[in-house]
Simulated scan of single mutants.
Amino acid sequence: MTTATTRSETVTAAPARSRGATAGLWTLQVVLALAFVGGSGLPKLVGESYAVQVFEDLGAGQWLRVVIGLLEIAGGIGLLVPRLAGLAATCLVALMVGATGAQLFFLHEGFWYTPVIIGALLAVVAWVRRAEVVALVAGR
């Protein structure tokens, strides 16, 4: 890890990654982005019948389906933008925590492990890109 000093502030650069690690990280981000945009977010926005039924079962109203669909699409797109990828992954982890809770406590379906697995993959992206998240939040 390298450090540079500018105007009495210390900036820590992201650790160098091998070409294979970088390719693997981007592959994971692209797969997750496709899953969130095409596999999850768009069906919610267009009112696919299963998505509508899930939110009816939650009793939260269809407005929540639209909001979550928009968040999933925004997060999926964010995963493809180098500067935003870590923050997008972090936000989507929070969304997956909520999805896990909804599955376990309200929907009582057997698919609670799906958001856990996706959340774990997103956590890997967030962890690897943590220096970029810190830099983005700090305004650098």
Rank of each mutant, 00 (worst) to 15 (best):
Q29F: 06
Q29E: 07
L32N: 10
L32I: 06
A33I: 02
A33Y: 04
A33S: 00
L34H: 13
F36H: 01
V37Y: 04
G38P: 03
G38V: 03
G38C: 00
G38R: 01
G38K: 02
G38W: 02
G39D: 00
S40E: 09
S40G: 14
L42N: 06
L42A: 07
P43Q: 05
K44T: 15
L45H: 09
V46W: 11
G47E: 07
G47C: 11
E48V: 11
S49V: 15
S49K: 14
A51H: 11
V52Q: 07
V52W: 06
Q53W: 08
Q53I: 03
V54R: 07
V54D: 07
V54M: 07
F55Q: 10
F55R: 01
D57F: 09
L58M: 08
G59L: 07
G59D: 08
G59Q: 08
A60C: 02
W63Y: 14
L64C: 00
R65A: 14
V66N: 04
V67D: 08
V67P: 12
V67W: 10
G69W: 11
G69P: 10
L71G: 15
I73N: 11
I73F: 09
I73W: 04
A74K: 13
G75K: 06
G75A: 04
I77T: 06
I77D: 03
G78L: 05
G78V: 12
L79W: 01
L79Y: 08
L79H: 04
L80P: 02
G86R: 06
G86A: 01
G86Y: 07
L87R: 08
L87W: 05
A89L: 07
T90S: 11
C91S: 13
C91D: 08
C91E: 12
A94K: 12
A94T: 12
M96H: 10
M96V: 11
V97W: 00
G98W: 08
G101Y: 12
G101P: 02
A102P: 10
A102T: 09
L104K: 02
L104I: 00
F106H: 05
L107D: 04
L107T: 03
H108R: 01
H108Y: 03
H108T: 01
E109A: 15
E109H: 13
F111M: 15
F111C: 15
W112K: 00
Y113I: 13
Y113C: 10
Y113P: 06
T114E: 05
P115T: 06
P115A: 05
P115H: 05
V116C: 12
I117N: 09
I117F: 04
I118V: 15
I118H: 07
G119D: 01
G119K: 06
A120S: 03
